[in-house]
Amino acid sequence: MKACTVCKMISSKDHCPSCGNPTSDNWSGLLIITDPEESRVAKELNIEIPGEYCLRVR
């Protein structure tokens, strides 16, 4: 799995399906957002799309 270097969304693609930026293999920490409307964590990180995100990417 790879993480987008900009929005941190995790996918298996070379380019992020959400924002189109390149992805990286080097990531750590996992955050799964199931309900961005209700989640304070999602609001804190300005995440609006449900999905898997990493916490740190390089």
């Binding site: 920490g29 955050l31 309900d35 409307e37 209700e38």
Partner: peptide, 24 residues
């Protein structure tokens, strides 16, 4: 565990889980 819980949160109503955090 996080992925399994997230799947349940998406498929079953009333669980109320909005996010799951797995810090390294």
């Amino acid at each position: 565990v996080a992925r399994l819980l997230a799947r349940k949160a998406r498929t079953i109503d009333g669980i109320g889980i909005s996010s799951i955090l797995v810090p390294e």
